[in-house]
């Protein structure tokens, strides 16, 4: 009778469980998600309750800009990116990363497991925030020209892409956290890349206005069609390109995280 050979390679499920515990043991996880949800609800109510439609402009009324307003969702993206930054940079600053990589020398599997856990949290957060925004703005608009309901395919698409945006933001945040590894520097960089850079590019100050279109929020705006009818709307990509961008940002971020973490010393 022989004793069973001990299983010494961690299964992927074990890695996910380990990352799950790490994320759930941080108070900031709950704080960020609760704050984001609250912010989105208040913003949706504010936007919905302060609508001004000029008498002749009722035909151009687009109810989608109230639940899915660009400033609010840029902020939600940055919050999600902060979550991603902390998942990576926090582990470096506490030193836990050394124990993690000693236990699991295959660093890419660790990053993949981290990506799965972070994405799961952000997908849940995204669905909650998206639906809450939709219904709160719809309630605030009622009696006016609302018609916000998931029955309409364009609204369903806007709600779905808004739910996906935090996943994208968090994976981009993981890449920034892996590149910078200092929590304050990485959080500021996340703000810079996801919010201030698009603003700067769109302002036309530097002659790179076209680059606004490859930013996550521009892709989101193209798909959700939540563009204000202003005389100079921000440039957005074609819808097909926008879907590609929504897929490319998270995949490239995950690849960048994995390459940087594998090549650098801890």
């Amino acid at each position: 009778m022989s004793t069973p050979i001990p299983r010494n390679r961690a299964r992927f499920g074990d890695l996910v469980a380990a990352e799950w515990i790490k994320v759930r043991s941080l108070r900031s996880t709950y704080g960020l998600m609760a704050f984001g949800l609250l912010f989105a609800v208040v913003a949706a109510w504010w936007e919905g309750a302060h609508v001004r439609v000029a008498p002749g402009a009722a035909a151009q009324f687009n109810p989608l800009v109230y639940p899915y307003n660009d400033a609010t969702w840029e902020f939600i993206t940055v919050l999600a990116a902060t979550f991603g930054v902390l998942a990576v940079a926090g582990e470096y600053s506490s030193g836990l990363i050394r124990a993690t990589f000693t236990a699991v020398p295959d660093r890419r599997r660790v990053i993949l497991a981290k990506g799965v856990v972070v994405s799961t949290h952000m997908a849940l957060f995204g669905v909650l925030t998206s639906l809450a925004s939709l219904y709160v703005a719809g309630a605030a608009l009622s009696g006016q020209l609302s018609g916000l309901s998931l029955d309409r395919p364009d609204i369903l698409r806007a709600a779905a892409v808004s739910a996906a945006l935090p996943v994208l933001g968090a994976l981009a945040g993981m890449a920034i956290g892996a590149l910078i590894r200092h929590p304050a520097g990485a959080v500021s960089t996340a703000w810079g890349v996801l919010l201030f850079l698009p603003t700067l590019l769109a302002s036309g100050t530097i002659g790179l206005g076209w680059a606004t279109q490859v930013m996550p929020v521009a892709a989101w705006e193209a798909i959700s069609r939540s563009t204000y009818g202003t005389p100079h709307p921000n440039p957005v990509p074609a819808v097909g390109v926008a879907w590609l961008l929504m897929a490319a940002w998270p995949l490239l971020s995950l690849a960048a995280t994995s390459v940087v973490v594998t090549r650098r010393d801890v």
Binding site: S28, F75, V78, T82, V85, L86, A89, G90, S93, H182, P183, A184, G185, A186, V187, S188, W191, L195, F196
Partner: peptide, 15 residues
Amino acid sequence: HAAATGFAVCAVLGF
């Protein structure tokens, strides 16, 4: 806290 302060600075002065 470094990350929280970075976030607050960006929120107050930038956003």
